[in-house]
Nucleic acid binder design. Structure first.
Lengths: 247, 247
DNA sequence: CAATGGGGTTTACGACGTCTACTGCGTATG
DNA sequence: CATACGCAGTAGACGTCGTAAACCCCATTG
């Protein structure tokens, strides 16, 4: 019946279109709203039609991760020339460090654009083995490994840097996005944070510090932490060219 | 009918019992197996009986987090006297650093005991506001904040250290537990990792490095990273007593 | 013009979370 | 000693979910 309503029913769907709709739905109404039926409705299609483009709902979640990293890669590409323009001004740090910083920033940026996807990005790799990760993830990882390799690090060190980077970036964003506000309608700060629920005798420091959570500068701390983590490492042979590391 | 079979049907359940059964079920068969019906069956009870002890399935997930941190706290308590015994031997580092290290170790330990719960612990705080977090989480956080406060740090610094610690610890464990093996039945290493799926031309470094993932020493890197993150911070006034920080 | 097959539909099934109504035991009360 | 109460668990039903199987229709191709 629906096929009569819409004469151009052929080729309405495609994997990119499905993934884009999924991301949009999750952005708009949260992860819990992502349902095969709901997503199909958004696309003006019967639920089973989606199964031509995704093997299962689990695979659809992996599709979210795919879309996420595709966007990270995209952002990296578009910010590449700008980075090249800046490179003449401050060549004090080795390019591999600048590149890691750039990637961390792009990652953070995409997380802020799609905060609801973060839990999926954080936890899906726990279930899907490396070789089955979505292509954009593989590309980004390959890129990082090759940048570090070209900087002259040996294999174990490359691995350490990569994992350190991934852990810190992911952990930071996860902690940044933790819910602190309780009742967002409430005008009074203490009540908005729900602190009246915390017995003052048991949690004095918590009550004192939670209101200051908003003062925290996420991106600054992300970068600062990255710096201290990387400064522990043995210098790459080629770093000497650039003044021997961060200022 | 079931009440005739079991004469002592009263008081079979309790919140701790329900949570323990949930943890056991998740440990045994994974998160996806955690179903109200299945959990009820494990407890020899009708599904709706669970709702006396948990408001919803979402609340049950928060219950998993509660059980998780209760176990962390428990492990901290039992390892306390051992730490006190060691303290005479190597008093070179300030107690707040030793305490953070101890907490990280306990956390990692519980994650290894219940790896399937990690995704819940990592992502639930994204949905539940601070003041509504389970009591064991509140206790642990209060403990950390108070230890840091007693060390002489001012409030913003306490917050920075706390968040840095949380981000790094969580990120590390998340990255450590990522699935790398594809087909665990396969004897050949390359095939077991599923690397034949990766086009050699596109992902040379990935193919070269993935086999070395197993060489990584998780706990060592966790502690090492923690050290470099904390060494960036301004020293606490009281650190002078202990030789001015880490060796 | 008949055969092919890809893209989307229809229908159906079982499992899930949870609402409402209930039932029977243990206890406290008169 | 009888009775009313309320807590803990049961019974059954409802709506929604993911998805398997069979189908149908249209565009292409020989």
């Amino acid at each position: 019946m629906a096929q009569r309503d819409n004469p151009a029913r052929r080729g309405r769907l495609s994997r990119p279109r499905v993934l884009a709709a999924a991301v949009a739905l999750v952005d708009r109404e949260g992860l819990a709203a992502l349902t095969m039926r709901r997503l199909a409705a958004d696309l003006g299609v019967e639920p089973m039609a989606l199964y031509r483009y995704t093997a299962s709902k689990e695979a659809l979640l992996d599709g979210l991760v795919e879309a996420f990293f595709a966007e990270v890669n995209e952002r990296l590409r578009t910010s590449a020339e700008q980075a090249r323009a800046d490179s003449g001004a401050a060549p004090v740090e080795p390019p591999w460090r600048a590149e890691l910083r750039r990637i961390a920033r792009a990652f953070a940026c995409v997380v802020h654009a799609h905060p609801e996807i973060l839990p999926v990005v954080a936890t899906r790799p726990l279930a899907v083995p490396v070789a089955r990760r979505p292509q954009p993830w593989l590309q980004l990882t390959e890129h990082m490994l090759s940048v570090l390799g070209r900087a002259g690090f040996d294999d174990p060190t490359v691995l350490t840097i990569y994992r350190t980077f991934a852990a810190w970036t992911l952990g930071c964003l996860l902690v940044d996005k933790r819910q602190v506000v309780d009742d967002s309608e409430e005008p009074d700060l203490m009540l908005r944070l729900g602190l009246h629920r915390l017995p003052a005798a048991d949690y004095p420091r918590l009550r004192a510090l939670v209101p200051r959570f908003s003062e925290y500068d996420d991106e600054r701390e992300l970068m600062a932490g990255l710096d201290s983590l990387l400064s522990r490492l043995p210098e790459a042979p080629l770093d000497a060219f650039y003044g021997g590391g961060a200022p």
